[in-house]
């Protein structure tokens, strides 16, 4: 019975997305059954829309930049956390998680005030900062699950054999944690790519894909929103799957080489 329940649960989660996907291929603008046939017209419409292409490109740039910054900061922080003890560890861990424990609304309005106060005009750059703030907690949590099991003795062994700190990091630490970093970085990109709640406040005149979809949603229920949504959806789901596969494959290889 529990088995049946879990499949209903999953179906409930994915059903709305499946419906949107189905109707994005609908040959008529109607969003109701009976289904009148398949067509790619809404995709053609969206791809020939300069606004859409521009927002998509902005989202890719912001996502890549946010993921890069998050990867550097988050990896260092996760390695730092593994070396911390007691109170320092608890306080820093809490601080690093806090940004996602609050509704995005609070982060958005605080950042707007900061930007106004230091006179930083809103742009893609200010969106990237906001996204890093939002993705760092997820990145660190993902890394922690791996780094907590990391044997610091391996690093000590390398040091005893005469390797300097940088060499130790490059030859011992990095190869071990690299797959996890790659997976977490892709996750950060996907989170940034989908972020809307905070972005609204910090975007100024720039649009990202979710902002464009929102402005389309506000105008009317129109079938090209389906196509735009499905494209955005499949891009992030595709990326997450690729990230997952990389991590899975690397781990399997690591297990294989040990045996």
């Amino acid at each position: 019975m529990l088995r049946a329940y879990i499949w209903i649960y999953v179906a409930f989660l994915y059903a709305p997305m499946a419906i949107i996907t189905l109707f994005s291929f609908h040959s008529s603008p109607s969003l109701t059954f009976p289904f009148e046939g398949f067509s790619l017209r809404w995709y053609e419409k969206i791809f020939s829309d300069a606004n859409f292409m521009h927002s998509l490109w902005n989202s890719v740039i912001v996502g890549a930049a946010a993921a890069a910054v998050t990867t550097v900061l988050g990896s260092l922080a996760a390695l730092g956390l593994a070396r911390m003890k007691g109170k320092t560890k608890a306080v820093f861990g809490l601080l690093a998680f806090a940004p996602v424990g609050l509704p995005g609304l609070f982060l958005g309005i605080s950042l707007v005030i900061l930007y106004a106060q230091i006179g930083l005009p809103r742009s893609l750059f200010t969106i990237v900062i906001a996204h890093v703030l939002f993705t760092i907690p997820f990145f660190i949590e993902t890394m922690r699950s791996r780094v907590e099991y990391f044997d610091l003795g391996l690093e000590e062994a390398a040091r005893d054999l005469g390797a300097g700190p940088l060499r130790t990091f490059w030859l011992v630490t990095l190869p071990i944690i690299a797959p996890t970093i790659a997976g977490a970085a892709i996750l950060a990109f996907a989170l940034s790519f989908d972020e809307f709640i905070i972005t609204v406040f910090v975007s100024g005149n720039e649009t990202t894909l979710p902002l464009l979809i929102w402005s389309m949603m506000r105008r009317a229920v129109s079938p090209d929103i389906n196509a735009a949504s499905v494209l955005s959806l499949s891009l992030s789901i595709g990326l997450i799957l690729i990230g997952g596969l990389i991590v899975w494959y690397q781990r399997r290889k690591a297990i294989g080489s040990r045996a």
Partner: peptide, 8 residues
């Protein structure tokens, strides 16, 4: 499903 589709 959580990471990918808030607005959608």
């Amino acid at each position: 499903s959580w990471f990918s589709s808030y607005l959608v």
